[in-house]
Amino acid sequence: MSPKSFLADRPKDYERFGIAPDHIEVREDGMRADSTKQGFYEWWYFDAHLDNGAKIVVTFFTKDAASPNTGLQPRIEFDLDLPDGRSLHKQATFSADQFTAATDRCEVKIANNTFSGDLHKYTITASIEDISFTAHLSGQTEPWRSAAGSIFYGADEKDYFSWLPSVPYGDVELTYTVGNEPEVTTSGNGYHDHNWGNAPMTSIINNWYWGRGAAGPYTFITADIVSEKKYDYDRVTVFMLAKDGKVIADDGNKVTFKKSDIHEDPVTGKPVGNIHSYTYRDGDEEYELSYSREKTILQNKFIDTVTGFKKLAAKLIGFDGSYLRLTGPVTVTHRVAGEVVESVTEPAIWEQMYPGKTRAEDCA
């Protein structure tokens, strides 16, 4: 039986999206979905781990991907974790006429906030309430996508979710201000990706683990994406490993995903693997990426973000979707014919998103 959700990787899939299998064009990071139409959504994402100990995550949305059956409703969200232990979350919604985006490159503007770049160099600026920042991101790992960059859902292949890691890893120079505190300028490493689709994420995805980072000469992106029940919980594994800026392994069909030491998150009630790993095997060559949770730094229940009738309706249907951001070490191990030839460990941040109902198999 054919899978009900699967990665787009056939010649006709590249033709459908007007892209090439061996080249990424600057226009691919431009606006890809008409978010003025119901059902379509899009966002541009940036995160950075900074040398002073701060971490920042910023996203420019055209609308809420969980309930996209609206017109354009642009918003910006960002989280800033400061070296002194404070975690600050800001979000703002804007009117449709405050949003513009180019189709030939990444050039997104929401009011006076901007996200622009050319697959190699980006500038992101945002200011919400008493927090503002400007970031300059310079890619050190080549742009990448998994095959044609989309996952199809359903036999008619009408619904899809698409993803382009435009900068899998790059150098960052960033300046931020918080309230009346002195301006801070620091450097670090960062990441940018771009996502879009035409079906509510809560209707197609049951849960995912996603991570990115660097360890020694390696940079990596990983994702384990489990579809919803109506798609038989089909799994798509995404894996990219680069060394010295060049991709050396990215065939998800050669990857085994495992998780262990499962616990129930006390805030969201969702099962979380304290350890999860991706093992890539190609002949005698093997690469293993293993994440070990030490701390959960963000715990969100989706129901807490809605109000009024939508919140009542969500409670009535038992909606319990959640998002967790996790930290700890990640280890990259390279083996040849079973022998370890290299192993490096570095701190990392990753996430679990669980919009669907909890599956019994995720609790074991």
Rank of each mutant, 00 (worst) to 15 (best):
D232M: 00
Q38S: 14
K90P: 05
A20V: 10
G213H: 05
N69D: 03
V344S: 09
K229R: 11
S116L: 12
K258V: 14
S138C: 02
V247P: 02
S260H: 10
S227T: 03
P165C: 04
N113K: 10
S277Y: 00
I124W: 08
A92R: 15
K301S: 11
I248P: 01
G213I: 06
H49N: 12
S127H: 15
T307Y: 03
V340C: 11
E351K: 06
S67N: 04
D64P: 01
F309H: 00
A249G: 07
V255Q: 03
Y323D: 04
Y191S: 04
V272E: 07
A92D: 14
T36C: 07
T307D: 02
V167D: 05
V255P: 02
Y280L: 09
T202A: 07
K37G: 04
H23A: 13
E286F: 06
Y280R: 10
K315W: 09
H23E: 13
E181K: 13
K230F: 02
L316H: 00
M240R: 15
E28P: 09
V108G: 10
K12E: 15
Y160L: 07
D47T: 09
P355K: 01
D250R: 06
S277F: 00
M353S: 13
Y323M: 12
G245Q: 09
L7T: 08
F161M: 10
S2Q: 11
A20P: 01
D171F: 04
R10P: 06
L80W: 13
I262R: 07
T100D: 03
F61H: 13
K315L: 08
R16I: 05
F161T: 10
V272F: 02
L312E: 00
A147S: 07
D22F: 08
T345S: 15
P347H: 08
K37L: 14
D9P: 01
R335A: 11
K37I: 04
N253E: 11
L119E: 04
D97Y: 11
H192W: 02
L164T: 09
F99E: 09
S146P: 10
G117R: 11
R86T: 10
G139R: 01
V226N: 03
N206P: 01
S132P: 05
W144M: 03
S5T: 13
C363E: 09
D104W: 08
H263K: 14
A242Q: 06
N52M: 14
G252M: 05
Y153W: 08
E142Y: 00
D282P: 02
G216A: 06
T125Y: 14
F302P: 02
Y191Q: 05
I128C: 13
V108Y: 11
A101W: 10
R293K: 14
K55T: 13
E286G: 05
H334W: 10
G356N: 01
P3G: 00
